[in-house]
Nucleic acid binder design. Sequence first.
DNA 1: AGCACGCCGACT
DNA 2: GTCGGCGTGCTC
Length: 723
Amino acid sequence: MSRDNERPRDPAEASDGEQLALIRETVRKAKGERARPRTWRGAKLAGELPVARVLVDKGPVHLDKLWDYAVPAEMDAEARPGVRVRVRFGAGTGKVREGRREGGGLLDGYIIERVGESDYRGPLAALAQVVSPEPVLGPGLLALCRAVADRYAGSLADVLQLAMPKRNARAEGEPSPPPLPPPEPPAPGSWARYPAGPGFLEALARGDRPRAVWTALPGPHWPREWATAVAATLASGRGALVVVPDGRTAERVDAALTEVLGGPGRHVLLTADLGPEERYRRWLAVSRGSVRAVVGTRAAMFAPVRDLGLVGIWDDGDRSHSDERLPQPHARDVLLLRAVHEKTGFLLGDLGRTVEAAQLVENGWARPLEADREQVRAAAPLIRTVDEGEVARDAEARAARLPTLAWQTVREALTRGPVLVQVPRRGYVPKLACERCREPARCAHCSGPLEARDAEHLVCGWCGRDEPAWHCRECGGVRLRASIVGARRTAEELGRAFPAVPVRTSGRDHVLTSVPDRPALVVSTPGAEPVAEGGYAAALLLDGWALLGRPDLRAGEDALRHWLEAASLVRGHGDGGEGGDGRGGTVVIMAEPTQRPVQALVRWDPAGYAARELAERSQLGFPPISRMAAVTGPAEAVAELIASAGLPEGAETLGPVPLPPAPPGRPRRPGDPPPGEVWERALLRVRPGQGSALAAALKEAKAGRLARGEKDPAVRVDPLDIG
DNA sequence: AGCACGCCGACT
DNA sequence: GTCGGCGTGCTC
């Protein structure tokens, strides 16, 4: 049943709800005495629980406040908690002319609960319309959204905008398919390569809630391993949810689920590129309980899976797990909240390990799920480092700008299969660097990246100032070098050096999903690497130092993650890889071998790296042990918010400092100053264990201030980019 | 956000 | 006297 196209009617033929509102006007007109609410003589109200508490979704009042509306008798049956409604807001202040009310537009909202009477000491307006009887905001989802709002010092309405899919009347009008019975518990398959793997699956299958940080072995098995973990959970009669960073990965896991579950009926893929109608259709199938397993990208973290038994996240270090819309919740943390509130199992899978994951292991909340060294050695390729300053002896190698070892490795590997070449994305890394120590060249004013306008002039890429007398802040050097060669030029140069071999590129604009098991050079930016059907014979990781040189707390972690991702697509060293020719794959990384992320790659020891990083950050008072929040906005607004917040004992304020302008070209994000305005940012830091107190203080301070759009500073709990 | 109310100065 | 500036506060 669909009432989607029903518009508010002419007041002349107003519904019961409208009439109630009009009665209210009349009551108000009788000046002098305050109108008594809840005396609705003559108006037909719902007999039981005649008051609906409504969360107004959009519009001016995005406060975490519920508004009480009267439920007309005719809407009684449909106006259940969780349904979408439309209400008039601000009508009481509107003028009444010739019996027509003006002002007070219709706003969308959700009925949160039905109650017997209202605390509001005034006349209640009536619900204008029940948009549809579908209870889309169930108690579990509501509780989750509230928890996320609290955790991130945001409003419930903001979180609901992230969590709730757009309604589509056609999809809602269709019945969802009947649910299939739980499958049989799956065989462990390649989970047997992990000592604790089969036990983890058994725990899920018998209805327990194990929690693990899984360091996946390199190679092509992890999508299937995800599917097996989901299937084990389904076998217990519970549901499962897996969140991955991008649509391409979601499709791989989805395909594996179809194989493991023997068909498409028990799971859904939830990604943005399905389009709104299909997305809503699938979301409803989940909400109605006809499908209990979900794999999807970020927004799927809110999917209202019934009786959830397992939440999972893959590659939690990927930036796309963090929503850009306020309050910018991170999928890892949302799923952690779900694991706790909904009492589910938890699986964080990654080729590497983030510092946050290391913390979960360290404090004992999750157990490590790792393979033995033996298995790791067999599955990982051989990693060799090479100093990219080394002068190539061969003429061809010089032409391709490759050191001899890299050149020889590529040439040899090309006889056995495809070779992956990873090139940092332009714009992601500094364009110029000190020739001596490779410190990125930064603007003295705003620390933006310097660029060469021509042979003579340096210009800041952010603020546009000239830099006439650059010298290196680290070593005092005065000579610069172009830092990286872009993917396209790399592809051209390699194509000339290996004329007989096809060169393919994969990057931001066109991402290849896979390449066949034939000799080819595949030039890719991090994160866009195609899977090679028998594994790559070799990989070349170029400009490692440039990735490491980013002025970011997470530069080392990110670099290692990108390298592991590329290297995991290369045939294993010990077993020659699946479909290989019996000889193992090699990775050549052009980076300084003494750097810790480089050593971690060579030893294939992401867990050890993350543990050290965690210890170091803990000592320095950095997240995630200490918790932080960034407050960004016009200088006075930032200062006022911080001053008015009852910050927890021992909280430190770092800054505020002027915010560098957003790099041109990037779409504006919350916390970016509008063009032409100068904003500041302050960081708040609290001791371990006080994160929720910090969020609560900020939320309260925000609520205390008048909601005045742009003048209100943006609050970001757990900022990712703190330099 | 709108939209009222309200308390001040400049005008017919 | 009254018109209208935009500073506060309310909207179920």
